[in-house]
Design a protein around this nucleic acid. Structure first.
Length: 554
RNA sequence: GCGCCGGUAGCUCAGUGGAUAGAGCAUUAGUCUUCGGAACUAAGGGUCGGGGGUUCGAAUCCCUCCCGGCGUACCA
């Protein structure tokens, strides 16, 4: 990408200036550039002179002047200017910028693809909500972040696998089974109460009805007896299928659904890991439970692996799961996307990864702050235990997939977020996603009209794209590769929504100021059609990375 | 108490070492006999939570205090 070429030019200038004796010899820091806030300061700015003035024992301005003399010529660079207090400002050549329209159209879907990932295998695990209830709005945030990050990392050259960890074992699942059986019995007229710590939500009745519809009274036991141990799984499978469908409804598709229960299979990761930890002397029996001596690894306390009742804790199975990711499946990078309420779990899991022989450095846990659901001023609890649940599907149905995804991607993961159901519809009308999509539809309209009237961009001379609005738009197009890189390096997909708005804005300004189809200006018409083609490529690409549609009409 | 995340325009949020701190919404005033007005232009609006420090330069880094959310289970 062009930014890297500017960095290379600056690095070369430093070496040349030192070789020529215009600057003293010293080991310089890595060169970085930025985009100046004000266009009059150029397209790229290097602050190297300010940073090395001490090393050079010269004033920053003098360093900048020495560097400027040695910047090699480059077709993309029109001029390099020294600006106080010591910046080196690069201005792109308008002709080169215009020529990028041809390049972008030629690259099409491959534009902004990077080699950053170098084909490394990366696993992204996200949502992984308990299948004891339908997926709610808060989970939607994780879904939007995870699937977008997966798309962007693929574009950046990673071999990405997306996974949902299905918590189909453990205490909560047992309670789910008992609740379901109570509901099931109720359908047959029995007067039973749902368990004290059960799931009071209405959806449990629906699941029970589905079981009844499919298999009748097949699972009914004599009054007073408990359900068959496998009964809960029938409902659980239905819940998982519902979750899969709800996420697909939001445009989220996984490569694999990984069963927690399968970890416990004979010869499975759980047994391997427990044996390994015991062998390494990191397990002790105490107070009737089995503990992982994680304090030895720098943790603030030890953690229980096997409870007094003989059941493994969530932590124990999670160790086995990460052992499977790192050791069994050998991913080069593992990214877990969790809600902020799991924050205390992060260092524990990293410690465990190290203990089982994985590289904790290769594990990134991306935490997103929680979503508060409101109905006006009233906070709606998201807990499955509280009964009422506003499902993700409800929201997607009401607000739309595109607006829902865009909304979730609008703010950084570290920011808490309010989702007001009363405003949901209104928000959807005001949602900036439509501003971006409208740009795409507007272009499609012009391109269609041009085609209908016999205009093409064949043989376009893009050197005619000299108008300020055209040049501004071209520069925005060239930014996408940098945005892709930034999203991956920071694990911050929200940059895409901001870029998309800037890009759409630059287009709308261009559209207002520059008429595309003009019978008396055939050459300019061709050039501008080419610019529209390039813009539509980049807009569609940006929206596509976010899993949002790029409509030709709205 | 301790730990993590926040505190930036009326509201919702970008910006994590650069030049005069930005956007959307809201408010106000305009553009338009339209290649799709879901558009464009402009104005007003800021002690970047408070205080101290580091630096040529701090919203950004360090220290400290205040406020809010979350965590601190033999739940997941």
């Amino acid at each position: 990408m062009i930014r890297d070429e500017i960095i290379a030019l600056t690095t070369q200038a430093l070496a040349a200036a030192q070789a020529a004796g215009d600057l003293p010899q010293f080991a310089a820091p890595e060169v970085t550039t930025e985009h100046p806030a004000r266009p009059e300061h150029g397209d790229f700015s290097a602050n190297l002179p300010l940073r090395i003035q001490g090393l050079a024992r010269m004033k920053a301005i003098a360093v900048a002047e020495a560097l400027q003399k040695h910047v090699p010529a480059h077709p993309a660079v029109d001029r390099v200017v020294v600006a106080p207090p010591g910046f080196l400002n690069y201005y792109l050549a308008p002709g080169w910028a215009a020529a990028q329209a041809d390049v972008i159209v030629a690259e099409g879907d491959r534009f902004a693809s990077l080699t950053l990932g170098a084909g490394k295998r990366a696993q992204i695990e996200y949502v992984s909500a308990n299948p004891t209830g339908p997926i709610h709005v808060g989970n939607g945030r994780g879904a939007a972040i995870g699937s977008t990050l997966a798309n962007v990392m693929k574009t950046a050259g990673y071999d990405v696998e997306q996974e949902y960890y299905v918590n189909d074992a453990g205490t909560q699942v047992a309670i789910f089974g008992r609740t379901l059986y109570a509901r099931y019995e109720q359908l047959f007229g029995r007067e039973v109460e749902i368990p004290e710590n059960g799931y009071p939500g209405e959806y449990m009745i629906e699941v029970a009805k589905l079981v009844q519809q499919r298999d009748g009274d097949k699972y009914l036991r004599p009054v007073g007896e408990e359900a068959d141990p496998g009964f809960g799984r029938i409902g659980l499978d239905m819940m998982v299928e519902g979750i899969r469908a709800d996420l697909a409804h939001m445009g989220v598709e996984y490569d694999r659904w990984y069963s927690e229960r399968s970890l416990m299979d004979e010869g499975g990761p759980y047994h391997d890991v427990m044996a390994l930890l015991r062998q390494q002397g990191q397990v002790v029996e105490r107070e009737g439970a089995t503990w992982f001596t994680s304090t030895d690894l720098g943790e603030s306390k030890d953690n229980v692996l096997i409870r007094t009742d003989g059941q493994p804790t969530y932590y124990a199975t999670d160790i086995a799961y990460h052992y499977d990711k790192f050791i069994k499946r050998g991913f080069d990078r593992v990214i877990d996307i969790w809600g902020a309420d799991h924050q205390g779990h992060v260092s524990r899991v990293k410690a465990a990864v190290t203990a089982v022989g994985g590289n904790a450095e290769a594990l990134d846990v991306l935490l997103y702050q929680l979503v508060t659901l409101r109905r006006g001023d009233v906070v709606v609890p998201l807990s499955k235990r509280a009964g009422e649940i506003v499902t993700l599907r409800d929201v997607v149905d009401e607000v739309g997939r595109d607006a829902t995804r865009f909304f979730f991607l609008l703010t950084g993961a570290n920011q808490t977020m309010d989702f007001d159901l009363e405003l949901a519809k209104k928000q959807s009308d005001e949602n900036p996603v439509y501003y971006v999509q409208y740009a795409h539809a507007r272009i499609a309209g012009v391109l269609k009209r041009a085609a209908d009237e016999g205009y093409t961009s064949d043989g376009a001379d893009v050197a005619l794209l000299t108008h300020e609005a055209e040049q501004t738009l071209l520069r925005k197009l060239l930014l996408l590769p940098e945005v892709v890189e930034k999203v991956v390096l920071e694990l911050a997909p929200h940059h895409l929504t901001h870029y998309a708005q800037e890009l759409a804005g630059a287009f709308h300004v261009f559209y207002t100021q520059c008429r595309v189809i003009q019978a008396e200006e055939p050459a300019l018409t061709k050039a501008r059609l080419r610019l529209l083609q390039a813009t539509t490529v980049v807009l569609a690409r940006t929206l596509g990375l976010m899993g949002i549609s790029a409509p030709d009409s709205m």
